[in-house]
Design a protein around this nucleic acid. Structure first.
Length: 234
DNA sequence: GTTGAGCGTT
C-alpha cells in the first residue's frame, strides 16, 4: 500500500496538492498517509527523495481529493508534531498543476479581499513579501546549510595577507619578514605528492603567483628570513 | 550517524 509516487502521478484531474514541510528526514509517506487520510481522502502522497542517496528531503506532498478536506488538513495538521518535529502543512504553489484556480472553491469567501482591487495593493503585498528573506535559501540541501559560515576566514586569509603586505611596505618594511614562506610556496608547492597544480588555481582563483605579489616582491630577494623562530611559530 | 530552508515524480 505504499504505491505513492511509484508510478508517477496517478490522476491529478481533481486533486489538490498539499505541501508538508519541516517533517523529519525519516518520515515516509506511509507515516503521513494515516495522518492525512484521517482528515480527508488522500489520493496520493509523494515525497521527493534524493536521486543519488535516495534520502528524504524533509518535505512531502499530500494530494487530496477535495479542497475542503485539504484545507481542513492544513488547519489541523499544520503545526502538528510528527515524529518529534513540528510539520508545516500548506498548499502547494509551484507544483506541476498549481491548484490556484481551484483554491477559489474553498477560499472564495476569504479570497474576496484579494480580488484585483488595485495595483497598489499588489505592489504592497509584493513589497511586503520581499521583506522576508527566503530567496537567500538555496535549494541545495547541503548537510550544513549555513548562510554565514565564517566571515573573515578562509578567503579572508588571503586578503589579510595581502593587506599585511601592503602595510608592511608602507609602515614597516624592514621590521618583519614580509612572507618568507610565501615566496617558498611556489617552489615547494611544485608537487610533493603528485598534486595537480591546476586544482590549486581553481581553489583560490588566482592566489598563487599574481595575488601574492601583484607589485612584485623584490624584498624577498634582498630580505632573507632574519630569524627562524619567527617562521617556527607558524 | 550528521543537516533544517523549501516546492514534486512517470
Amino acid at each position: 500500500m505504499s504505491h505513492f509516487g511509484r508510478s508517477g502521478p496517478p490522476d491529478i484531474t481533481d486533486t489538490y496538492s498539499l505541501l508538508v514541510l519541516n517533517i523529519t528526514f525519516r518520515t515516509t509517506a506511509d507515516d503521513l498517509f494515516p495522518l492525512f487520510d484521517k482528515y480527508g481522502k488522500v489520493v496520493d502522497i509523494f515525497i521527493p527523495k534524493d536521486r543519488r542517496t535516495g534520502d528524504s528531503r524533509g518535505f512531502a506532498f499530500v494530494r487530496y481529493k477535495y479542497a475542503d478536506e485539504a484545507q481542513k488538513a492544513v488547519d489541523r495538521l499544520d503545526g502538528r508534531v510528527v515524529d518529534g518535529r513540528e510539520i508545516t502543512v500548506q498548499f502547494a504553489k509551484y507544483g506541476p498543476n498549481a491548484e490556484r484556480m481551484h483554491r477559489d472553491d474553498y477560499s472564495r469567501d476569504r479570497d474576496y479581499r484579494r480580488r484585483s482591487r488595485s495595483r497598489s495593493y499588489d505592489r504592497y503585498e509584493r513589497d511586503r513579501y520581499r521583506g522576508k528573506d527566503r530567496d537567500y535559501r538555496r535549494r541545495s540541501r547541503s548537510r550544513s546549510a549555513s548562510p554565514v559560515h565564517s566571515k573573515g576566514r578562509g578567503r579572508g586569509c588571503y586578503d589579510d595577507d595581502r593587506r599585511s603586505s601592503s602595510r608592511s611596505l608602507s609602515a614597516s618594511p624592514a621590521r618583519r619578514s614580509p612572507s618568507p614562506r610565501r615566496s617558498l610556496t611556489p617552489h615547494k608547492a611544485s608537487s610533493p605528492r603528485g598534486e595537480s597544480p591546476y586544482r590549486r588555481s581553481r581553489d583560490g582563483g588566482s592566489p598563487s603567483p599574481r595575488s601574492v605579489s601583484p607589485r612584485g616582491h623584490p624584498a624577498d630577494s634582498r630580505s632573507p628570513p632574519p630569524r627562524n623562530s619567527d617562521v617556527d611559530v607558524w
